[in-house]
Amino acid sequence: MSILVNKNSKVIVQGITGSEGEFHTKQMLEYGTNIVGGVTPGKGGQKTINEAINVYNSVEESVKETGANTSIIFVPPPFAADAIIESSYAGIGLIVCITEGVPIQDMVKVKQVVEQNGTRLIGPNCPGIITVDECKLGIMPGFICQKGNIGVVSKSGTLTYEAIDQLVNSGLGQTTAIGIGGDPIIGTSMKDCLELFQEDPETEGVVIIGEIGGQMEIEAAQWAKENMSKPIAGFIAGQTAPPGKRMGHAGAIVSGGNDTAKAKMDFLEKCDIAVSESVADIGALMKSLMN
């Protein structure tokens, strides 16, 4: 078991013939991800990645031909919202959008559509999701992971890798790691991921990595306090971030009193979540909770 993706996921890549799409398709195939096709409008009928993958003109066509149920998106920001909605309409159940820089107005609409259609969206502006040794649906370095029983959910890419690396060094493997993205509007929240990890029998503990801006960590912690039986180790980035400044991620900005790192760390602790003050202690903290 694991959450969201596994070796049976049938994946299509939207934007497969672009340079990023092509590069990461190769990486995902190497990891063992079951990629059944790609979509680039106007290039339908071609073959790509050493002639091994069929390209289709539309997601609808690719679903009909391959039975795909999962999609990963590498298209430029102006077309990303369209790509997500196309997949949602074609009946894809899980969409990961890697694209960084999608306009907020686009995402506000996308969010309504995917909710109405019951589509699970991860991202945008995220590293994706990996179920160790089964399916890598994203741009993370797969080899740093080790199979085990810790779930990881994070707003940030390299910080997720850092946490995974520390877990491995502490002797803890992972079930699934999800980068949910650092934009103000994203498809799947931290709380959604906690719900999934709570239900997954294989996951025995969870690392959550948040940052300044928004209330997503607060919502997740509140839910965990009431519903979660598994131990959680938390970290919040941005303790030294000045207010009103966007720290790289579009959503990482302190705009009030309740979205600072300090406010979130205090709230997490109030909800019985162990909080690591230093980024260097995340792995060790999780280890201590598992003993």
Partner: peptide
Amino acid sequence: MVNGAGLAMATMDIIKI
């Protein structure tokens, strides 16, 4: 100098610590 926004913030924080 860091790769990734989250790790960059965490690096600032640990310098302070």
